[in-house]
Design a protein around this nucleic acid. Structure first.
Lengths: 153, 153
DNA sequence: TCATTAGTTCATAATTTGCAGAACTAAAAA
DNA sequence: TTTTTAGTTCTGCAAATTATGAACTAATGA
């Protein structure tokens, strides 16, 4: 698996991005490699060797990514290897997860208003405001996506 | 600092949320406490004692949160203590950071298209689509916020 | 002037994490 | 049947993270 210097750099940057999103380093690099490599599908050994990570780390990373639906694989008859690739539907899901995270935050904030009793309700105003905004965003998002679809054509 | 069982639970949940967003555990609990406590402003010792974290951990957490603009404090004349509180403007900033994160992802994905050369361009279609969507979202967001403001009135 | 308060800093201890390496397994190939 | 392939699982280590406790500081108060 030959990679240009630019490709290697970008794999690291994508790796750091995914690390910041809770992936462990090796897992994050695998995501980067599958995204950046010229070939869209790579074998276990190609991944392990290109990234210089052990077989066990490679195995763990791939199984983790398979379980979380970030990657899948194809096979070819007469070839025992699996060919791993990014799941293309993954993008929409990745975005959805970000939105769900915001939605989870919003639920926590709503509970904050329930459990605390501030004598001065002024402190609640900004928080209620933000909660309202997140609700509005969630409600508007389908329409926004619909508009984008239309505009594309 | 008396806290109900519900308040304690919620502090933990908010703590975990913030841990997942890269905060360290004690820091995340301080955020939770300041958000959930009945009193909007708490002293160093109240925080330390309520959360059962050492003075040094409390000091580190508060300075970290001060430096990153998540909290600030007031003082009262003739009282040496500082009274720490969540910065209310923090909400909008928190949301902005999420959006910037998406924008950073988008920049990485644009670079992916530049550095890899896939013989079969079919693989690029979905990716280009997602990039387009993120661009659209970023562009539409100000308008969305504006509409929300109007609708509130 | 001495004691107290409100924190800070430092050395260190306790986890936690992330990965490597080796031994293993199950299926296919020779 | 033996060997090879394509991984998996287990043990253990190294590094990073996180928190503690004790010693310190700088300002206020008695």
């Amino acid at each position: 698996m030959a990679l240009s210097e630019k490709q290697r750099e970008l794999i690291e940057e994508i790796g750091i991005y995914h690390e910041n999103n809770g992936f462990q380093p090796a897992v994050a690099r695998v995501m980067g490699l599958l995204l950046v490599s010229d070939k869209p599908e790579l074998t276990f050994d190609e991944i392990s060797e290109t990234l210089n990570i052990s077989k066990s780390a490679t195995s763990n990373a791939l199984n983790m990514l398979l379980n979380t639906g970030h990657i899948d694989y194809t096979t070819f008859s007469g070839d025992r290897k699996r060919y791993f690739r990014i799941r293309s539907s993954n993008w929409r899901e990745l975005f959805n997860k970000k939105m769900e995270d915001l939605s989870g935050l919003n639920n926590l904030l709503k509970r904050v208003l329930e459990v605390r009793k501030r004598e001065n309700p002024e402190y609640d105003v900004k928080l209620k405001d933000f909660i309202g905004f997140l609700d509005y965003l969630k409600q508007q998002l389908p329409e926004l996506i619909e508009n984008w679809r239309k505009e594309k054509e």
